[in-house]
């Protein structure tokens, strides 16, 4: 169900960066920890993008595995999710290195030829 909220957040972020350029694709990095269901996110994205410059844009989902760091023994591992205790030394002093991302990574836009403004 949270895919609707996420789709809306992705749409608004992409719209802000797109300006009035038509958008053909949006790349989203979603950490596994965010529990995003890809089909559900695509479905809601299609719905919320209607009547915007992102209508019909592809949602390209990049899923990021969870990676944890034990701050006690400096071990790194990909957990049998969702376990946040170090498998080696049992410490609970653990940081999440990857897997919590929910980012708009890029947009693919259509630009008119010969209107390069030197902005890139």
């Amino acid at each position: 169900m949270h895919e609707l909220s996420i789709a809306t957040a992705v749409l608004n972020t992409a719209l802000r960066h797109a300006g009035d350029r038509p958008v053909t694709a949006v790349g989203v990095r979603a950490g596994r920890f965010r529990q995003v269901v890809p089909e559900s996110l695509r479905f809601y994205f299609e719905v919320v993008a209607r009547d915007t410059p992102l209508e019909g844009a592809r949602l390209e989902l990049i899923e990021v595995p969870v990676r944890l760091l034990c701050r006690a023994c400096r071990g790194e591992w990909e957990p049998d999710w969702p376990l946040f205790r170090c498998p080696d030394c049992a410490s609970a002093n653990v940081s999440v290195l990857a897997g919590e991302e929910l980012e708009v990574e890029y947009i693919e836009v259509e630009e008119k030829e010969a209107t390069c403004t030197g902005a890139r």
Partner: peptide
Amino acid sequence: MHRSKVRIVEDALDANN
């Protein structure tokens, strides 16, 4: 018209935050 990829890398919940 041509297509170009624009790198953003922004937390989707930035606006909320």
